[in-house]
Design a protein around this nucleic acid. Structure first.
Lengths: 131, 131
DNA sequence: AGCGCCGATACCGTTGAAGTAACCGGGCCT
DNA sequence: AGGCCCGGTTACTTCAACGGTATCGGCGCT
């Protein structure tokens, strides 16, 4: 059952939800490992399958994604549920503990929207003066 | 002029303000590089000198601290002011941009106080089941 | 003369996260 | 028989962060 309580399926993830050109790659703020924050964002709207997660995270290889997911499961941030079907189906869902990180991600995003341009500008100005 | 506006000097930093045994080393939240957050904490109360910063950050070598400080200066998070005195004196102070990170550090600390024990427990339970 | 203070820098080694490429097993379809 | 799909795994390599040790330059002190 991937259904939500109201019987609707979560909409497909936007493959472009993480723009590689986004300056958040410079963002001086990180939750866990490199991809943990983005995984939480992807799971925010409901459980997702392995290949669903790979769509928006195009640049993450299956190895790194699976490592990230296992680390998050170990830390109690998400649950992994394998269904004995064919083809095999595995679903990842945030735990309540994992959801407690969402406000922090929101705060980081708000900070970035407000202040990251200044940081990027300072870095570029410095590179211009001392290349 | 290390004086604050009221003419008092900032109190010396507590050499034990960062307990190496503190579980925050597990904290899934990081600002910039490994020491950036702690430097911000140290500078929160006013400008500090290089060796002042080394007191609470006993485990950071001068090389790494100087790298951290230069990266933060490059990003506009702090200013470096060298005084032509003897012995030489250099002061580091947070910029307004650097201060905008303090609420995020506070949020991370609050999260840790509330939820980190659960994460640590989950990790330990997992290690017990699959050592 | 020699030592220490301050604020570093140079050189080098280690570590761990991340990336690349290839492969797997089981069932299903053609 | 061959190929596809799914959800990975394995082995190998790369790269930046981090850390350790040693050293420097200018000055004052003894």
């Amino acid at each position: 059952m991937t259904d939500l309580t109201d019987g609707t399926l979560p909409p497909p993830l936007d493959p472009d939800m993480f723009d590689p050109a986004c300056p958040s790659s410079v963002m001086p703020f990180r939750v866990g490992d490199k991809w943990t924050g983005m995984v939480i964002r992807c799971l925010q709207g409901g459980p997702r399958r392995f290949t669903e997660l790979r769509a928006p995270l195009r640049s993450v290889t299956p190895k790194v994604l699976s490592e990230t997911l296992r680390a998050m499961e170990r830390d109690g941030l998400l649950t992994r549920t394998a269904y004995d079907e064919n083809p095999p189906r595995v679903e990842y869902a945030l735990t309540p503990l994992g959801r407690t990180l969402i406000p922090l991600l929101d705060a980081a995003r708000t900070w970035s929207e407000r202040h990251l341009p200044r940081l990027v500008a300072a870095r570029r100005a410095h590179e211009r003066d001392a290349p």
